[in-house]
Amino acid sequence: MNALTYESPGSLDEAVKLLAAAKGNAKVLAGGTDLLVQLRMGMIKPAMIIDIKKIPELTAINEENGGYRVGASVSGAVLGEHDGMKAAWPGVVEAFELIGSTQIQGRASMGGNLCNGSPAADAVPAMIAADAVCTIAGPNGRREAKVEDIVTGPGQTSLANGEIVVDFLFPARPARSGDAYLRFIPRTEMDIAVVGAGISLTLDDAGVCTDARVALGAVAPTQLLLQDGAAALIGSKLDGAAMEKLDAAARAACRPITDKRGTIEYRIKVAGVLARRAAKIAQQRAEG
């Protein structure tokens, strides 16, 4: 039997040291909503679990230059009660809050949602659309990376041995900006996304889209950032033609699989639908 140990360091330095010393045999525990399931199912057999919730900066939400820095261990329930983030990045908050039940929300973290590496992670497309940047601490100090550069494949990330995601910076955004995230699931709750679409955009005074980011989840081995999708919106008033272009761009980008949660055909079609619908919600939010 494996001799598992549990550590709950009070500082990031300590956590990084433990993680690096374990040479890949340790797992970071934030909310545990994925980790403990994998442990229970015997999918992972780590030698050490490092609980990072006692590290203050990982559980903090701070305003920073008009934007927000959100600790990687902040739970969905806590973020959902944060008025500043709700006003600034409603799409990010709603995406995070879609993960699991109320009970899961009490624990699940954005850092975990990202680092679990699931293509279907709900928070990730919204974070990518928001152009969020994460801080990563490791044996060689700190670095920053765009959220879209973290997941490299199902269950795979670009984090090096000993690295921990510390927080996410959601930047200040121009006036008349809005974001939204929609996902499709067979039920109304408790499912993994079959398709997810996150969109962030900015409008000028005439209602013309001047900037946009479009991200999809669950339709490829990683979340996708769609340049064509953004191009379809920028310069338009999100009229019918732009929506059709967005729909087509979303469908064209998909490289999904057929599995127990949905078919290739279904995912492709619904990706276009959700992209359009999310764009319209983001537009309404931008218009205030």
């Binding site: 067979p186 039920r187 109304t188 709750e189 408790m190 499912d191 993994i192 127990k260 949660r261």
Partner: peptide
Amino acid sequence: YIYDEKGRLDNASFLDYRIPVASD
């Protein structure tokens, strides 16, 4: 019940065996 090509049950959990939840 969803089976894989080897005849193994692929959705042996409440996550993917989808009984109605309260909001459904």
